[in-house]
Design a protein around this nucleic acid. Structure first.
Length: 487
RNA sequence: GCCAGCGUAGCUCAAUGGUAGAGCAGUGCCUUCAUAAGGCAUUGGUAGCAGGUCCGAUCCCUGCCGCUGGCACCA
């Protein structure tokens, strides 16, 4: 029986164009999804646009366009990136989708309310009119003003909001996490969450006045003066995208999510708030939360003000998709910050792809082509000229690595095989051989290449397919280089 | 400030209470099927700093320095 496997990526803010950090998460998620597909699971992938945040409204105003138009436009850039990365999602759920997402969030709210977990309370805070946000005292300068708008004193603003009884779920969430029912990877993030829980939870505000929300976002059920706070609503995209509140059959099939892939910055929302909302609503919790770390660029944090934001689409145009996928997956540990540099990327391209895999394929392609008349009917017809099943293939340490999201270790395992294949050629010197001995040596090489390509399918889908197409037919033809060397 | 993690060869990282390993880069040799690619061999580290425990510490403990993250209604 096939298992269902539902994986999500964090839904990005669509207030700006995507950067390489988004690309990294898309590729990691896609690699996991492809792996599960190959081992026979029925897979669904979801991502979407976090569109109901006030930041989007502010960014739209700055850009001088209507909010919906603005988020639609940015949303397209993200979807386009997933296509370029060969990492498209089955579902791309927009937060501004009135047909599916709005009723879905309404339903989540109503379930929580029914369980008596939503109540009204007056919130009082220091409000900067310029920024249109609340600040804590520690966030302000010596004069008690915000750094963006010095000279403008902050106002004490009182607002009646809807609150969620987060405190009620402290124990339950802790138990789920510690028992592994809600599995957080890596351990250090799990420990952080547990430490946070042990300090005790306060209830949180989950609505904003229409005025503050600029009438943007999902209206609070039964209170036309308020909008649902973005996080309560955004997390629910993981459910609204699979039918929650509008198609129970689909929802039942896919929920709960098997993996939420997220960046370290939003751990608390996924590991505490989200499970609490779900518990309150009487719904199942996600099974795994995979927390990855961030990129720095040339040793510095990515930021717009530093101007070191790298456009992943540009990199793909320049070097191709699979080289970028390879660099992301092979050269970084998901559990540590990694430094992205185009120089290192090019080095990796030449060392591992041009000189390594690409050259191996080229040399065997040429050796086999020169002898195709001998190989075709007699010897190659059956044995190596066949695809091997991904499920049957011996995966060894590769499999464990992949199941623990250690993409880099899995690829290192494959590259050991590339090295072994090169060695096999050098030791046997097939260019000096003829007849049966030559056939044996080349058969082995072809088998090695087919195995390598098969294992590469979740990582470098295009390349794997090209290699398999070339080497799983009776007559092998030499092909142009897979990865032309960069100078 | 408090808490956690990290600080190992030029670069990216690993293992380990008993005189430090890999990949890339570098160097030498071999080879020519291949994208001046490949194979073999090899140079290179006073293990952030200072103490302590131990027969012995890179690995355990303490202090300091540096980096990263967490310390809620900020996404």
């Amino acid at each position: 029986m096939t298992k269902k496997f539902y994986i999500t990526s964090a839904i990005p803010y669509v207030n700006a164009a995507p950067h390489i950090g988004h690309a990294l998460e898309f590729v990691q998620t896609n690699c996991i999804a492809r792996y599960h597909k190959l081992v026979g699971d029925e897979v669904l992938t979801l991502c979407g646009g976090d569109e109901n945040a006030l930041k989007n409204v502010q960014a739209a105003e700055k850009a001088g366009s209507p909010v919906q138009e603005f988020v639609d436009k940015n949303n397209k850039l993200f979807e386009e990136l997933t296509i370029q990365l060969n990492a498209t999602y089955d579902v791309w759920q927009k937060g501004s989708d009135h047909a599916h997402h709005f009723p879905s969030s309404k339903k989540l709210w109503e379930l929580c309310a029914k369980n008596d977990d939503i109540y009204q309370k007056t919130y009082e805070g220091l409000y900067c009119v310029g920024c249109e946000t609340f600040y804590e005292r520690e966030e302000l300068n010596d004069q008690g003003e915000c750094f963006e708008h010095p000279g403008k004193p902050l106002q004490t603003v009182k607002e009646k909001n809807w609150f969620f009884r987060l405190s009620k779920y402290e124990q339950q969430i802790k138990e789920k996490i510690q028992s592994g029912q809600l599995h957080i990877v890596p351990e250090k993030r799990k420990n952080e969450v547990v430490a946070f829980l042990e300090r005790g939870l306060n209830d949180i505000s989950i609505s904003r006045s229409n005025e503050r929300a600029k009438n943007w976002g999902v209206p609070v059920p039964g209170d036309p003066t308020q909008r649902i706070y973005v996080w309560f609503d955004a997390l629910n995209i993981y459910q609204s995208g699979v039918g929650f509140g509008w198609d129970e059959k689909t929802y039942k099939k896919w929920w709960p999510a098997d993996i939420h892939a997220i960046g370290k910055g939003i751990t608390r929302f996924h590991a505490i708030y989200w499970p609490a909302f779900l518990l309150s609503a009487g719904l199942e919790l996600p099974k795994n939360i995979f927390v990855h770390e961030y990129f720095t660029v040339n040793g510095q944090k990515m930021s717009k003000t530093l101007g070191n934001v790298i456009d992943p689409v540009m990199l793909i145009k320049k070097y191709g998709v699979d080289p970028l996928r390879y660099y992301f997956l092979a050269k970084f540990s998901p559990f540590n910050d990694g430094d992205f540099s185009e120089e290192e990327f090019k080095k990796t391209y030449n060392a591992d792809l041009a000189n390594g895999l690409g050259n191996l394929v080229a040399r065997v392609g040429k050796l086999a082509q020169g002898l195709s008349f001998q190989l075709s009917a007699t010897r190659l017809a059956g044995a190596p000229a066949k695809r091997v099943s991904y499920q049957q293939i011996n995966k060894g340490a590769y499999q464990k690595a992949l199941e623990e999201y250690r993409f880099n270790d899995a690829l290192a395992y494959v590259w050991d095989k590339v090295k072994a294949a090169d060695k096999h050629i050098d030791e046997n010197e097939p260019w000096k051989l003829t007849g049966d001995v030559l056939h044996e040596v080349l058969e082995k090489s072809i088998q090695q290449i087919v195995e390598i390509a098969t294992l590469l399918q979740p990582f470098l889908p295009d390349t794997a397919e090209k290699i398999l197409a070339q080497f799983t037919r009776p007559t092998i033809q030499s092909q142009p280089p897979l990865f032309p060397r960069l100078t």
